[in-house]
Lab assay of single mutants.
Amino acid sequence: MATGGRRGAAAAPLLVAVAALLLGAAGHLYPGEVCPGMDIRNNLTRLHELENCSVIEGHLQILLMFKTRPEDFRDLSFPKLIMITDYLLLFRVYGLESLKDLFPNLTVIRGSRLFFNYALVIFEMVHLKELGLYNLMNITRGSVRIEKNNELCYLATIDWSRILDSVEDNYIVLNKDDNEECGDICPGTAKGKTNCPATVINGQFVERCWTHSHCQKVCPTICKSHGCTAEGLCCHSECLGNCSQPDDPTKCVACRNFYLDGRCVETCPPPYYHFQDWRCVNFSFCQDLHHKCKNSRRQGCHQYVIHNNKCIPECPSGYTMNSSNLLCTPCLGPCPKVCHLLEGEKTIDSVTSAQELRGCTVINGSLIINIRGGNNLAAELEANLGLIEEISGYLKIRRSYALVSLSFFRKLRLIRGETLEIGNYSFYALDNQNLRQLWDWSKHNLTITQGKLFFHYNPKLCLSEIHKMEEVSGTKGRQERNDIALKTNGDQASCENELLKFSYIRTSFDKI
């Protein structure tokens, strides 16, 4: 039985969820670079991206490699990797027998973001014989899940209580170790020597080791999670996991709180800001991140802002960003909400898709409305799209047979046209069989910064309504002859009103 693990408890099935942008060198404390989270699957090609990484700022997932063999891993080693800020997950990587050479110096898994409450997941690794993470000293947050690894031993010899604050939620089941077939031998045991430290858990006094050649490092209890030197002297209180010299914040392997210019500090002093819960960055760093993602459509890219001495992905609820200094300031009234469309555009074809934009005031991208039916549609669209004030790209209304009016965009005031449909149009209306009105132009103002209007096959939309939009939106004169079809717009509506004058002759039985 794995020490510190839980057996036999019912657990939810383990679901495996399925960018080499360097964020800056980590400095003297770390020998390499800070790398983003990685999802490495199918083959070993991307694994080489770990070569210079000291910190993975995010998670590391290595999974679904069915053609790899043990010899493929023999020359692979990433000794610079010290810390993973989120979680480490391995799933069905064939041929991998140990992690001792792959990650010989991995010391800390912070667990800032977890995989279903777990910071370390080893699942269905069919050839893994031992973990071998002999320098792993601290899992700051989260638990361990090690399950269905039929060859995995050296679990009962690990004292997880020396690595985690609590072992109650560890789930370590259905491994070879369960069948008591392992016969784990710690260093020196074969020669009758006791080389590794022994600890007591559940009444068992057991030597602690990761492999037959690597003991588990056990520091004096007084050192807590700070770690200790090879001689057993406690590291500085700002260290986490390990250090090369005692009581020196510049000799830590990793930091308990924050890293700044080669030393570990309790908090980031001005003019620095907390970033990702582990390091200090200056304003320029946060500003660069903001600008890199301002026009990016890459998933996970955030326009970072500053709030409460932190550089964070977005302002919290009730705050909006001051564009001059990136500071989050309290909103006066309802907060603006910028919604970034991942692929640059979004099609609204149902109430469900409209709900995804609920509360958005600025759309960074283009909207395509293609709704053919739905219950209580006008009210639903207004509830979900009615706060949109600005669209950076274009607005396209296409084959939306259920629409009679666009009044559900009740606050839309600006279409920038930074991206144009077919390279020309910022407003595009095609084949809307029941569209009769755009907006009530006596109450609604709309500016279209650039781009043209396109109207074709809107049989109940009168040309007068379209011409009014040209005047109000500032697009009059931009359109070419064929942009607004004269014969297919309003051709099934009563669009022309003329005053009919009647004269009559009164007659009676005795007068003409």
Rank of each mutant, 00 (worst) to 15 (best):
H28F: 13
P270K: 05
E130G: 05
G111D: 00
M125T: 04
G203V: 07
C209E: 05
D75Q: 11
N202Y: 12
E49N: 04
S213N: 10
G241S: 09
M125C: 06
S54G: 01
L332I: 08
S98T: 09
C228N: 05
N202H: 14
C223H: 03
K294A: 11
S324T: 07
I306F: 14
I109D: 00
G333D: 11
V108A: 05
I222L: 05
R92T: 04
C186V: 03
V173S: 07
S324P: 14
I122R: 00
K310T: 04
G203K: 11
N257T: 09
I62A: 01
F66W: 14
D277R: 11
P197R: 13
C311S: 03
N170T: 07
S112R: 08
D165F: 13
K129Q: 11
D248M: 04
V144R: 01
Q204D: 13
S323G: 14
L106G: 00
M38I: 10
Q299T: 08
S317A: 05
L88P: 00
F103L: 04
G300E: 04
G142E: 01
P330E: 13
D184M: 15
H48V: 12
Q245M: 07
L152S: 04
T68I: 04
E238W: 07
N138R: 15
Q303W: 05
L99P: 01
D178M: 14
L136P: 00
G95K: 06
C280M: 00
K224W: 03
H48M: 01
D247E: 04
G32L: 11
D177R: 12
C293F: 03
F103A: 01
I158Q: 08
F283Y: 12
T329L: 08
F78T: 01
V144P: 02
T250M: 07
V218R: 09
T194I: 12
C328V: 03
F205I: 05
C182A: 12
F73A: 12
T199D: 13
N42V: 07
I82Y: 14
V218G: 08
K217Q: 05
G37L: 08
F285Q: 13
E151V: 13
S244P: 05
K217G: 12
G318H: 05
L332G: 13
A190G: 09
V200I: 10
F258C: 09
L136C: 03
A198P: 12
P270F: 07
D169I: 07
K80G: 11
V126G: 04
D165R: 12
S112G: 06
L152Y: 01
V265M: 07
L233N: 14
Q61P: 00
F66L: 15
F78C: 03
N295F: 12
L155N: 09
C264P: 01
L63A: 08
D184G: 15
N105T: 04
P187N: 12
R263D: 07
I185F: 07
Q299P: 10
C153I: 02
Y259I: 15
E168R: 09
N257Y: 07
T45A: 06
L63Q: 07
S161C: 07
D288W: 05
P249N: 13
P270C: 04
F91V: 05
F283P: 08
P336D: 08
M321T: 06
P270G: 09
N282C: 02
K148I: 01
F91H: 05
G142I: 02
E207H: 12
P334T: 12
L131A: 15
C255T: 00
R208F: 15
S323F: 12
P187A: 11
E97T: 08
Q303S: 11
C215D: 13
C335V: 05
N179P: 07
C280G: 01
N202T: 10
K193V: 04
V34Q: 04
